[in-house]
Nucleic acid binder design. Structure first.
Lengths: 196, 196
DNA sequence: GTCAAACTTGACAGACCTGTCAAGATTGAA
DNA sequence: TTCAATCTTGACAGGTCTGTCAAGTTTGAC
């Protein structure tokens, strides 16, 4: 390999991800990315082709991390505890940072119109992975028996509701009301007479 | 009054609303609005000041219409029927048009970062109005007794979940899966032993 | 009919962004 | 050490958008 790339790809993607999380995909320009990463705009074009390709590359880090966190959270014998840990993961990820970063997928999904088919497809795929991950988690430890809805429906419900939480986070910027909503969520999804 | 405005303000706002629904607030330019309304860009600046002011003006029509539809939907003696009509309203409003328009509030909320404080505040206010409208609806006809959660929590839950539905609509563009999610929603919110 | 306030129009300067490219610098491999 | 592939850099042309303004037009009131 001749003429080696002079920047650390991982570090660049990490910084790019930060930018996307704070500004959103469509509001981010190549100039923003160049400034944040310290890599010349021309080099970014040369290495990746453009904003969307950078997004897709950076997104993989995000996706892997996120799903891993969800897997760990759900790996518990009690449904209420598992869902509590799940929601806590989701909320923590969207409310950390100052200003809060919000949820990257939700935001990108909402601006679907302004993105390319590839990005749209990746977001759709990721939400499917999230759903599958949740469903698999709920099928462990006999959690399913403690739920009002079957695992698949519960997983879809959780994906949708947490997207709603992400929208409310943007509007309220208030952790407490999100936590309260999460309590309601768990109350309606876990059987009332389930093991304590 | 001298030098009368030469366009029909209502018609202009209706067209502007269409543009905002299709492109989203931040992706809409004054040029888009001028083309869609047939009013010269300079005239729009003169009459309203800018994009955000036009949005806020147009939004009032949208808000009034929407809440009225919700009020009518919830005005029923059976909780399941009322929630079904409610969700149907919400879904119909976001899935009509081709391509589907999506939900204006959800979208604008998601791009909160890129809008002005006034717009953010209006969206927050509108979601509060929606919540209050739903709560008031649920307190009629003894619906509250048929619900798993108290009216206020149910209202908040519905606002949040329907925001999630709006995000999923962008991703899936598939009415059927949204309807399925809505069925789950009603199943978990209405008491199992409630009057049929 | 006159007139001045208010509206309309086309044009302009200034930002910002994109995508590309030629010239220069770097570096692994022969 | 040489060299060619690859990366870096600064610059450029072209595009979109914004906000403003002067000149022209319209119209209600007198």
């Amino acid at each position: 390999m001749v003429g080696t790339r002079q920047f650390d790809e991982n570090a660049v993607m990490q910084r790019a991800l930060d930018v996307f999380r704070h500004k959103g995909l469509s509001a981010t320009s190549m100039i923003d990315l160049a400034l944040a990463t310290g890599v010349h705009r021309g080099s970014l074009y040369n290495a990746y082709g453009g904003k969307n390709a950078i997004f897709l590359t950076a997104f993989e880090q995000y996706a892997r991390d996120y799903l891993q966190g969800i897997r760990v959270a759900l790996d518990q014998p009690d449904a209420r505890a598992a869902l509590t840990a799940f929601v806590d993961q989701v909320l923590t990820r969207m409310t950390t940072g100052s200003p809060a970063r919000g949820c990257l997928t939700t935001r990108t999904a909402a601006e679907s119109n302004e993105t390319t088919p590839l990005v749209r497809e990746r977001i759709r795929g990721w939400l499917k992975e999230l759903e599958d991950t949740i469903e698999a988690g709920l099928r462990q430890h006999g959690l399913a028996a403690q739920l009002v809805l079957p695992p698949r429906e519960t997983a879809r419900f959780l994906v949708t509701f947490t997207r709603g939480l992400a929208v409310m986070e943007r509007v309220h910027q208030d952790d407490a009301s999100l936590r309260e909503l999460s309590r309601s969520l768990i109350d309606v999804l876990v059987q009332r007479d389930a093991a304590p």
